[in-house]
């Protein structure tokens, strides 16, 4: 009986959360298109999101490229298809691995950052203070952050992709004696706009999801410093989860377009 009740509560809570998040997203769109626009703050946030995540994204990208190539090499050698390495790694990184890994890393850094920052601002009444000061805190804090994440993530993904390919080409250079020029030639031979464009569009959505959940969790933080921790934590969990949902939908949709 109690378990059943608990389940019902949880389900209710789940849909409540989704509804809440949707309202939050709708509010974002409404506020984002109406002036005034906080350009200066947007730039600051872009810097925070973009430049400050670059090193992290590049490090993980490099390692992913390295590992992906090292792990695939024996199998490809077995099939006598090791010369296909650049094509395979190139497509998998540009299409899927690059955007998803970058987005996951960023959800760890950016979403939690947003959650904690906005959460502490909420708890210490800084958000109220802003509103009293005649600045729409939603515009100033939320819209700029979501926009910054949405705009910066595709760029981060591109950097991540490049570094991952570089890592992969290093392995091929030292283990397979493949020159960088040949490697990248093959990569770009394998790639088409059908790989790059959906991945880039996907990255925008990833950025949006990261920004949205981070801000949502931060903005709705409950009272007390404990609420800030919870906000940061749940922001990461929710963002990561939503990323995969978005990824699934994106792959599904782009697949349909491929068919056309």
């Amino acid at each position: 009986m109690d378990v059943k009740f608990n389940m019902v509560q949880k389900t209710k809570h789940f849909f409540e959360e989704i509804g809440d998040l949707s309202f939050f997203a709708a509010r974002f769109f409404k506020q984002a298109v109406n002036p005034p626009f906080e350009f200066k703050e947007l730039l600051r946030q872009c810097y925070q999101v973009g430049n400050r995540s670059l090193l992290l994204v590049m490090t993980t990208g490099f390692i992913i490229g390295l590992v992906l190539t090292l792990q695939t090499r024996p199998t490809l050698i077995e099939f006598g298809a090791v010369s296909w390495m650049p094509n395979m790694v190139g497509i998998s990184i540009v299409r899927e691995v690059g955007p998803v890994i970058t987005a996951l890393i960023c959800s760890g850094k950016i979403a939690s950052g947003f959650g904690a920052e906005l959460g502490s601002m909420k708890v210490t009444e800084q958000i109220d203070a802003m509103e009293v000061s005649g600045t729409n805190p939603f515009k100033y804090l939320v819209v700029t952050r979501i926009l910054a994440a949405t705009l910066m993530l595709p760029l981060l993904v591109i950097f991540g992709d490049l570094i991952a390919l570089y890592g992969s080409s290093l392995v091929e250079f030292f283990k397979g004696n493949v020159s960088f020029r040949l490697y990248f030639n093959k990569v770009f031979e394998a790639l088409s706009f059908g790989d790059l464009i959906p991945a880039t569009i996907k990255s925008f959505f990833f950025g949006f999801v990261i920004g949205l959940t981070g801000c949502y969790k931060g903005y709705k933080t409950g009272r007390g410093t404990a609420g800030v921790g919870i906000a940061a934590n749940t922001a990461v969990v929710m963002a990561s989860l939503l990323l995969f949902v978005v990824d699934f939908v994106a792959v599904f949709v782009s697949d349909i377009f491929y068919e056309l």
Binding site: M121, Q126, G134, T135
Partner: peptide
């Protein structure tokens, strides 16, 4: 505000300038 509610990411000067942005 109760806890002062100064904006952590801004200097004192920016904190004071903030209300003037819109007003």
């Amino acid at each position: 505000f109760q806890g002062s509610a100064l904006y952590d990411s801004m200097t004192v000067r920016e904190n004071l300038e903030f209300p003037m942005r819109r007003h």
